[in-house]
Computed example of a mutant assay.
Amino acid sequence: MNILVCIKQVPDMESRFKANGEGVWYEETDLAFRMNEYDEYAVEQAVKLKEQLGDAPEVTVLSIGPDRVVEAIKKALAMGCDRALHVRDPAVHLKDPWQIASIISGYARDKGFDLIFTGMQSQDRGSAQVGVTVAEQLGYACVTTLVGFSYADGAITARRELEGGVKGVVRMKTPALLTCQLGLNVPRYPTLPNIMKAKKKEIVTVPVADLLKEEPLAATTGFYPPAKKGGGIVLEGDVADMADRLVGILKDKTAVLR
């Protein structure tokens, strides 16, 4: 079995974000970066399947971005992936989901991947469009929001989370693409021996121009934080007095009670 897992490097969500000079993305200076959380579940599931099936499967990890994404690739290799492709693109933040999917499918189309795992969505953009678009471009069956997975006798049983906490079960044959989310598994922590082994694993780098032939369907025209809201007012003292003061504030500041 031939398995592909797609990952993205994103800023740590605890970072302080501000718009860059062009006003179309965030300023990356001084930001800490990590593997997208949902992609960690995808890597773990790909490696678990490899372990289930023995040594025959090969897991390839793919990531698109500038040179810094190699750190996320190395983590995936240390978790158990076998080889890696780094699609070097310093301007990946300007690509829309259609273009990102086209890069992935452009690489995967002639590689004979039986399964492709991706995260449900990225934490920085949150479009949840890339995985399903790759499946459409390749003609693969697709299951999203995966929270359960099993493979036996050439068939996949996938459990997915639907609206309202309802669970749906889907059975399918390969080739297929699955998008993964919280609840599917617990990603392993790379051990020191596996980190050392990962240093010897192959990372192939190709320029994005070798794979991308599509023009964007959408472009970001503005990027800015939400407008700051005014501070709150804390009322203290006697309850009756606070109630009177509150009524006065509501009359003065809003249309309530007018």
Score class of each variant (00 low, 15 high):
Gly54Glu: 07
Asp82Pro: 02
Asp114Lys: 05
Ile3Gly: 03
Gly165Met: 07
Leu53Ala: 12
Glu202Leu: 15
Asp238Val: 14
Pro187Trp: 04
Ser105His: 09
Lys8Tyr: 05
Gly232Asn: 10
Cys6Trp: 00
Asn36Lys: 06
Ala198His: 01
Gly21Ile: 10
Thr174Glu: 12
Asp124Thr: 07
Asp30Phe: 13
Val43Lys: 05
Ser15Tyr: 01
His93Arg: 14
Arg88Cys: 07
Pro225Glu: 10
Arg188Ala: 13
Tyr151Asp: 13
Glu215Leu: 14
Gln181Met: 14
Asp238Lys: 08
Thr29Leu: 10
Pro226Arg: 04
Val5Ile: 08
Asp30Arg: 13
Gly54Arg: 08
Ala128Tyr: 03
Met13Glu: 10
Leu115Tyr: 12
Ile100Tyr: 00
Gln129Pro: 00
Ser105Trp: 01
Ser102Tyr: 04
Ile116Arg: 06
Ile64Cys: 03
Leu235Thr: 12
Thr174Asn: 07
Lys50Leu: 04
Leu235Phe: 13
Tyr151Cys: 06
Trp25Cys: 13
Pro11Ala: 01
Pro11Ser: 03
Ala56Gln: 10
Asp82Ala: 11
Gly222Pro: 00
Lys229Ser: 08
Ala240Gln: 15
Leu31Lys: 03
Leu94Arg: 14
Asp244Tyr: 11
Asp252Asn: 10
Trp98Thr: 14
Asn20His: 06
Cys81Thr: 11
Arg34Ile: 15
Ala78Ile: 11
Asp12Gln: 09
Val69Gln: 03
Phe113Thr: 07
Val47Arg: 01
Thr157Phe: 00
Val132Phe: 00
Gly126Cys: 06
